[in-house]
């Protein structure tokens, strides 16, 4: 049966003819959320393992960026709201069924923690730093004694943050491309990979660079595996899921996804990292920047493609 549908009388802005209520703000925030989750995860992990001095970029330097990054991400989220003055309503409710509510509360807890966590390391990164107030210095020193415990909390929260950026989308049954449980682990892995890439960029020692290149390689491998599963799952689904997969297999997102995300953001940087680990001289920042760019492109393409996929009736 061929069915042609003509809609008359509906031309709601940003809904028709193609849904596009979420622009650049949401994918930008999802990228930042993942990146911050990655940085915090590795910083917490190597604090717990007592390797603060061995891997200083991961444990001490990278977290310095997290309050600024999260600030940028939250600004993007605020810009996205169309009823901005009511944003505080997020914090008058806890809605267990709403991933958006989960995210708002996770950020509420994690944002101040990133400030405290980076404050713990300020003196290691900037030796001449002066807190000016004695009480502030004492408070930070007191918290420092509990940094292991805090690292455990941060590690759990960073996984929730990284995972929720994907679950936010996968909870929407109405958009078949998003409606797959793979998005949570895929975005978490991509966020960890972006975090590892940023640490590689900041790192000054070969030992640390190589460790994170190896970690990043494993994460890229996992991501490729998850991407294959994403399409296997969609292609084994109902007609609408098959249509959603086709957007990437010949449809409008084919070139951008396979060139910028899979090749440019995963396979190519992974190849460079392998060559680098085999002692072939390649500037490490090339692969790190490509991974970060691929991670950003993944969010943009997934958010757009989800809105382009729909139920047929």
């Amino acid at each position: 049966m061929i069915e042609e549908i003509i809609v008359s009388g509906r031309m709601n802005p940003e809904i028709d003819p193609y849904l596009h209520v979420w622009g650049w703000e949401i994918p930008f925030y999802l990228f930042i959320g993942g990146l911050v989750a990655g940085i915090l995860f590795f910083s917490a992990l190597y604090t717990i393992r007592g390797k603060e001095n061995e891997y200083p970029s991961a444990v001490k330097i990278a977290p310095m960026f997290t309050p600024i990054l999260l600030g940028l991400g939250l600004s993007a989220l605020l810009l996205d709201l169309s009823h901005k003055l009511y944003f505080w309503q997020l914090y008058t409710n806890i809605r267990w069924e709403s991933p958006m509510s989960w995210g708002a509360w996770t950020l509420m807890i994690i944002y101040p923690l990133t400030i405290v966590w980076s404050a713990l390391w300020v003196k290691d990164v900037f030796p001449k730093w002066n807190w000016r107030y004695q009480w502030l210095e004492e408070t930070i020193e007191t918290i420092r004694q509990y940094k292991r415990q805090m690292a455990w909390i941060l590690m759990v929260l960073s996984i929730i943050l990284g995972m929720y950026t994907g679950i936010l989308l996968s909870a929407f049954n109405a958009r078949p491309f998003w409606n797959t449980a793979i998005l949570g682990p895929l975005f978490l892995t991509s966020g960890l990979s972006a975090g590892a890439a940023l640490i590689m960029l900041l790192s000054k020692t070969t030992k640390e660079k190589h460790l994170f290149a190896r970690i990043d390689l494993m994460l890229i491998g996992t991501e490729l595996f998850l991407i294959i599963h994403l399409f296997m799952g969609l292609l084994a689904g109902t007609q609408v899921h098959i249509e959603a997969a086709k957007l990437f297999l010949g449809g409008e997102f084919t070139n951008s996804f396979w060139i910028f995300v899979v090749f440019g953001g995963l396979i190519f940087p992974a190849t460079l990292e392998i060559l680098e680990l085999r002692k072939i001289k390649i500037p490490h920042y090339i692969s790190a920047i490509l991974v970060l760019f691929g991670s950003l492109a993944l969010r943009f393409i997934v958010v757009d493609a989800g809105q382009a996929s729909r139920w047929l009736y």
Partner: peptide, 15 residues
């Protein structure tokens, strides 16, 4: 109470 996050718009299969 609406903050304009548009999650409900994304969630509606009928647009």
């Amino acid at each position: 109470e609406c903050i304009g996050c548009k999650a409900c718009i994304e969630s509606c299969p009928y647009d």
